[in-house]
Design a protein around this nucleic acid. Structure first.
Lengths: 289, 289
DNA sequence: CTGCTGGTGAAGTAAATATTTCAGAATAAA
DNA sequence: TTTATTCTGAAATATTTACTTCACCAGCAG
C-alpha cells in the first residue's frame, strides 16, 4: 500500500535538526500559524520571520522543492484538501463500473453542479418565485427556447395540475403578440434562456415589462441578458463532460418549486388534484400498478 | 453595532449584474472552488477561467480593490478566519437557507436518489443502450407518457442532433399504427413509463416485439410491466418530498447516454453538428453571448 | 449599411518576486 | 592567533507577476 504523503508541517518537524539557526527561526515562524503564513510572497515570509530571502530558498530546497513557488503550490494543495471535505466525495456512483466510466464521471460533475448552484441561490428569490406562482389572481405564462422547450413543458404540466390560468406559450415568436394581448399587469412570465441565448427572448422580456408583468427567469451560471429585465433570476450550472449542456440542475429547481408551491396551496388545490386523478381513473388510461 | 464585512464571495454575488460576460465567467470560476482558486497568481487565475489578465484586474477593481495583490490579501485574511473556526461542515445545500428549507430537503433526497439509482445500474446495460443508439442502420422511435413526454422530447432533440432516423412518436395511441407500419426489424424503440403506468404502453411494446424491435425502457424503481418485454431496462429512483415524482435521475441518465453516444460517434456526426451550428448562426436566431 | 459604444485580450511596460552570487561574519579547531 | 569551514544576508540578476495601453470586434442605435 502506498505511503501517504507527509504534510509540509510534518516534514518541517522532521528535518529540524538539519536546519541552521536562521532556518530554524524561519521554520518556527512558518509553523506558528501554519499554513497561512506560507501563502504570501517570499519577501513577506522572510520579513515576518526576520531572516533573508536566500534563507527561505535554502530551507525550501532542503525540504526537496525546486523553488519557493513549488513549495507554495504544494502548501495550497494541502490546504485545499483540508478545507474541501464538506461532502464525503463519492469516488464511484455506479457501483459496478470503473470510476473512469462515463456514468461515474458524468454523475460526479452533475452532483458538483447541484451543490454549487444551490450554494449560490438566494433562498429568498426562490421563495418569492414560489409566492408569485401560488397567487391564483395572477395568470402564468411559460416559454422555453430550443433546448429548454422540454423543461418549459414539464413545468407547465405540473403547474397546470396545481392551479388555474397557466399558459404554455408556443415557441414561434410570431405567435407571442396574441399572448401579450391577453396579459394583465401583475401576471407572471416564466422564461427559460440558457447559453446560445436567443435573440427573441430579450424582445419578449421587453414586451412583458411594458405590460408590467413579473418575469421569473431560469438561466445558466453566465446569465442570459434577460436577467437585467427579470424580477427573479435563478441560475444553474450546466457544464458537463459532453458536447451539450446539462439541464439536470434546472429541472431540480423546477421540481423543488413545484413541491413548495403545491404544499403552500394544498388547501385550495387539493380538490383540483383529486378531481384530476378521478378523471384519469375513469378514462382507464392508467393502471394503478 | 458595526456591520459585518461581507465576504468576497458574497460581494461577487452581489455585483453579478454589473459584470460583463468575461467578468462573470471569471467570477464563476473563482466561486467554483472558492477561495483556493484566488490564491494563485493573476496569470494562473486568468488562465483557469479562460479570460485575460486585464479582465481579472478590471473585475477586482469593481469589487473595490486597488489591485490584485490587495484582493488576494483580503482572500487570505478571510480564509484564515475560516480555517481557525472550523464550524463550516456542509450540512446544507443552499448556503443561506436553514436546512429545513425545502430546497435543502429536496436536494438532499434527489442526491440520494442519484446515488442509489446509479449503484443499482448495470453499466453493461447502459453501454448496450448506447451501442444500439449509435447504430445508424437502426431507426430510433421515441415515446413518452403523460409525465415523461417532456423527457422524451428532450432526448429526441439531442439524439436528432447526433444522428439520422430519429422519430418522436406522438402521444395519441391512435397514431401509433402509422409508425409501426414503418418499423423494421432491428430498429430501436425507446419507451418511458413511470408509475401510474399507462395501459397503452404494454400494447405498444407487444406490437413492437412482433416487429422484432429492440426496446429500451426507462422506468422507475418499481419497474413498469413493460420491463418484461424490454431488451434493456434502466431504472431510476423517483420519490421526493413532493406530491409528484422526480424526473431528475432519468434526465441524468439520458444526458449521460447522449454524452457517450456523441463521443463514440463523433467522427461521423461531427459534420452534422457543425452544419447545424452554422445553420443556427446564419439564421441569426442565436447570439454568441 | 454606418458610425458609435463598450468589452476584450494581445502586446508592451512597470514592478514585484524569486534566485544567484559573493563578501564578510560567525564558529570551531589547531 | 591563525585557518578552515559554515552560515548569512546585501546586492545583482533573472524571472514572473501585475498593470497599462490600445487596436479590434461584437452589438447596437440611427
Amino acid at each position: 500500500m502506498a505511503k501517504v504523503q507527509k504534510t509540509i508541517a510534518e516534514r518541517l518537524q522532521d528535518i529540524q535538526n538539519e536546519l541552521t539557526r536562521a532556518e530554524r527561526q524561519l521554520a518556527s515562524s512558518l509553523l506558528a500559524n501554519y499554513p497561512m503564513s506560507g501563502l504570501s510572497s517570499i519577501t513577506a515570509v522572510a520579513e515576518h520571520a526576520e531572516v533573508s530571502t536566500p534563507t527561505v530558498i535554502r530551507m525550501v530546497r532542503k525540504l526537496g522543492f525546486e523553488g519557493y513557488p513549488q513549495f507554495q503550490a504544494e502548501l495550497r494543495k494541502e490546504l485545499e484538501a483540508t478545507i474541501t471535505t464538506p461532502i464525503t466525495r463519492h469516488e464511484k456512483w455506479a457501483g459496478n463500473a470503473p470510476d473512469t466510466h462515463i456514468l461515474n464521471e458524468f454523475t460526479g460533475v452533475v452532483v458538483d453542479n447541484i451543490q454549487q448552484s444551490l450554494s449560490q441561490i438566494d433562498p429568498t428569490v426562490f421563495d418569492q418565485a414560489c409566492q408569485l406562482l401560488s397567487d391564483q389572481k395572477r395568470s402564468i405564462y411559460i416559454t422555453g427556447g430550443r433546448i429548454t422547450r422540454a423543461l418549459a413543458d414539464y413545468f407547465f404540466m405540473h403547474l397546470q395540475m396545481i392551479r388555474k390560468h397557466v399558459h404554455n406559450m408556443e415557441s414561434r415568436s410570431s405567435s407571442w403578440p396574441h399572448y401579450i394581448l391577453d396579459m394583465n399587469a401583475g401576471d407572471v412570465l416564466v422564461m427559460f434562456d440558457v447559453r446560445r441565448y436567443e435573440n427573441s427572448s430579450i424582445k419578449l422580456a421587453e414586451l412583458a415589462k411594458n405590460q408590467k408583468l413579473k418575469i421569473i427567469l431560469f438561466t445558466d451560471q453566465w446569465r442570459s441578458p434577460v436577467s437585467k429585465l427579470a424580477d427573479l433570476t435563478l441560475c444553474s450550472r450546466i457544464s458537463v463532460p459532453s458536447a451539450w449542456d446539462s439541464s439536470v440542475v434546472t429541472l431540480l429547481l423546477l421540481e423543488a418549486i413545484v413541491a413548495k408551491t403545491q404544499k403552500s396551496t394544498w388547501d385550495s388545490t387539493k380538490n383540483r388534484v383529486e378531481e384530476l386523478e378521478n378523471l384519469f381513473d375513469q378514462t382507464k388510461f392508467f393502471r394503478k400498478f
